[in-house]
Amino acid sequence: MTAGAPRPAHRRAAAEAAQRAFIVFGGGGELPWLRPLRRGFRHCFAALEDAGGWTVLDPLSGRLVVARLDGLPPGFDLPGFYRRAGLAVLGPFRPGGPRRSLLPPFAPFSCVSLCRAVLGAGAPFAMTPFGLFRALARRGDDRKIFLTPGAPPA
């Protein structure tokens, strides 16, 4: 970038990146307060694919991990890797635009809120990972607004 040239806005840069998002569900019962949630759906995170590779957004307890997976070969099937590891994976989705609202969100920051933020304004309402999984899985024809053109349905 040359000196004085304006930086692209984050929203415009994300739109130009042609990202695909996959939402990954799993989790045992590592933390006591997660045990009431359905086994296998106690946590979720997002894996984003763009032309340069994969980025994983994983909200852990008290910390957000953003990891660019640079060591993977081009064309690596990360969703398939997660499926073979026993995790449930939905996608690909196209990350949506921002949600417009007069009031700030009142829900606490959680793995579900992060995944909903990645999906954007059209993301279904959910409070638990299993609720998000069900809402995304049953979208049917409505889910086409999230799907990348030409991508197979989840």
Rank of each mutant, 00 (worst) to 15 (best):
A135R: 07
M127N: 06
A15H: 03
G26K: 08
P8F: 00
L69H: 02
A123D: 01
R138L: 06
P74I: 08
L48C: 09
G86C: 11
S110V: 14
A5C: 09
R11M: 05
L48E: 00
P32Y: 06
F22W: 12
T2Q: 10
P6L: 05
F25T: 02
R38G: 06
G52Q: 14
A123Q: 13
G4Q: 01
F130D: 15
H43M: 07
V112K: 03
P95N: 00
A46E: 04
G28Q: 07
L48K: 08
R39E: 11
P32K: 02
V24Q: 02
L31Q: 04
D70K: 07
R12K: 14
G52H: 12
R116P: 09
L136R: 00
F81A: 15
G71K: 08
I145H: 12
L37C: 13
A123V: 03
I145M: 13
L147C: 12
A121D: 08
A135M: 10
G71M: 03
W54R: 07
F25R: 00
D77K: 09
G80K: 04
C44V: 13
C111H: 10
A121E: 15
A9L: 13
R39F: 06
A47D: 07
Q19Y: 10
A126Y: 08
M127L: 15
P98I: 04
R38Q: 13
G75W: 02
G62L: 08
P73C: 02
L136Q: 07
P104S: 04
P152Y: 07
L31F: 11
A151T: 06
A5I: 01
R11D: 14
L114G: 00
L69G: 10
L57I: 02
A14H: 06
F109R: 14
